[in-house]
């Protein structure tokens, strides 16, 4: 349980789903991706060919996310199933 929820409980305030929610981080990869239409894969600035993004576009307490253009995810949770799964 996060600190804000714990404080609320101590004050006798009932918990809500929003109160229990965890902030997500949007920190970006140090590497810059360039998509190559010829090879149909990414090339990073350091020459690595495979993008490391094999998880969701937003993470929790992590050190990086995968939104390489600095944009938020589409938040279309009506599709692609659980965006954090």
């Amino acid at each position: 349980m996060n600190d804000e929820a714990k404080k609320s409980l101590a004050m006798g305030i009932l918990l809500t789903p929003l109160l229990l929610s965890t902030s997500t981080l949007e920190v970006h990869y140090e590497d810059v991706f360039t998509y190559d239409h010829e090879r149909q894969v990414n090339t990073m600035e350091n020459g690595t060919q495979l993008a490391s993004n094999t998880m969701s576009s937003t993470t929790f307490n992590g050190t990086q996310t995968f939104d390489w253009q600095g944009n938020p995810s589409d938040s279309d949770t009506d599709s692609d199933a659980d965006p954090f799964g």
Binding site: M1, A5, L9, L14, L15, T16, P17, L18, L20, S21, T22, S23, T24, E26, T58, F60, P72, S73, S75, T77, D82, P83, F84, G85
Partner: peptide, 26 residues
């Protein structure tokens, strides 16, 4: 749904002390 809230937070799996600590209106 694991949807992000307006302030970009998400309800992950969380232990609760008891049912009577939950707001029944949600």
């Amino acid at each position: 749904a694991s949807s992000q809230s307006d302030d970009k937070s998400v309800l992950m799996t969380t232990s609760i002390p008891s049912l009577d600590t939950l707001d029944p209106n949600f």
